[in-house]
């Protein structure tokens, strides 16, 4: 019987994640996917962002369903301590989300700037048409 203390990490059997932990990961994955689908239905989160978040959710669900696959993948990549691979995987996922959001934020910021400038210029033009010219 394998116990965490009896073997080194490299010797640990593949997919050594307890059923309770798998259930927890499954719940997190399902929760994330359900939240994203709700947001998609309400149209409160943009579709590209939803797609990215659903991909993250699918990754979490995949981990809950086939932890041994991730362990194999980890060893295939030469990472013999699978949790390091999980962290790397999570980091890449989060980084992708941050990059996506940073890009969207820059675009939104630029659009917001242009809109506020146009509003200000239009208001000024309207005021010039209706008001007499200013006097020193």
């Amino acid at each position: 019987m394998w116990t965490p203390d009896s073997l080194t990490a490299a010797q640990a059997p593949l997919g050594h994640i307890s059923p309770r932990a798998r259930l927890l990961v499954l719940c997190i994955g399902l929760g994330l996917c359900a939240w994203v689908v709700t947001k998609m239905r309400n149209r409160t989160v943009l579709i590209p962002t939803c797609t990215l978040l659903l991909a993250v959710g699918a990754g979490i669900l995949g981990f809950a369903a086939w932890p041994s696959f991730f362990d194999r993948l980890s060893r295939l990549l030469g990472i013999y301590y699978p949790p390091v691979f999980y962290f790397l995987f999570a980091f890449i996922g989060l980084f992708a989300v941050v990059l996506h959001l940073a890009t969207r934020l820059s675009i939104t910021d630029e659009r917001c700037r242009k809109l506020s400038q146009e509003i200000a210029l239009l208001k000024a033009a309207q005021k010039t048409e209706t008001d007499p010219p200013p006097r020193p």
């Binding site: 509003i119 200000a120 210029l121 208001k123 000024a124 010039t128």
Partner: peptide
Amino acid sequence: GAALIDLP
């Protein structure tokens, strides 16, 4: 006596 442009 200045013309004003008001940013929101």
